[in-house]
Amino acid sequence: MSIDRESYIPVHQQVAAILRQRIESGELRPGQKMPSETQVSQEFGIGRDTARDAFGVLRAEGLIETEKRVGSTVRVPPPVEPVDVPGPARITFRLPSPEERRRLPVGQGAVVVVIEREGEAPVLLASDRTELVIPR
């Protein structure tokens, strides 16, 4: 795949889409080191800032994790745990606060699930590790 410089889609978004496809197809596997920003910029003929922006998109989507001085790796999906949600309950989703991100912990790009029931304290869960089960 190549990027289309005439497209209305920003170049960093196009590069992110190509890398995303490589992850989803299994060409880049969970736990595998991603190519460096320099390698991506050379492959696509783009600047390192554009490559960095593409990696930022994938990080925000929760597809990769980046560690300073180590680089980026394809994120290993955490195990998903089913959580029973008997009604009546109100379920919302939102971005976590920095403290909630540390406490839960919530993966990069993931939101928190907030389950509220009358008379009870809200329950916060990491969306990337939770499957809501609502009984019939």
Score class of each variant (00 low, 15 high):
V11Q: 06
Q14G: 01
V15T: 04
A17M: 08
L19K: 03
R20V: 06
I23Q: 07
E27L: 14
E27K: 15
P30H: 12
K33Y: 09
K33R: 15
S36I: 05
S36E: 07
E37A: 11
T38H: 13
Q39V: 09
S41L: 09
D49Q: 14
D49R: 15
T50E: 03
A51K: 00
D53W: 05
F55N: 01
G56T: 03
G56S: 05
V57S: 01
L58Y: 01
L58P: 00
R59Y: 08
R59V: 05
A60N: 14
G62Y: 02
I64G: 00
T66N: 06
K68C: 00
K68W: 04
R69C: 07
R69Y: 12
V70R: 15
G71R: 01
S72C: 08
T73G: 01
R75Q: 09
R75M: 09
P79A: 14
E81N: 13
P82N: 12
V83P: 01
D84N: 12
V85R: 02
A89Y: 03
R90Y: 10
T92V: 07
F93Y: 15
R94Y: 04
L95K: 13
L95S: 14
P96K: 06
S97L: 12
S97R: 13
P98I: 09
E99S: 13
E99D: 14
R101E: 11
R101I: 05
P105F: 11
P105C: 12
V106S: 03
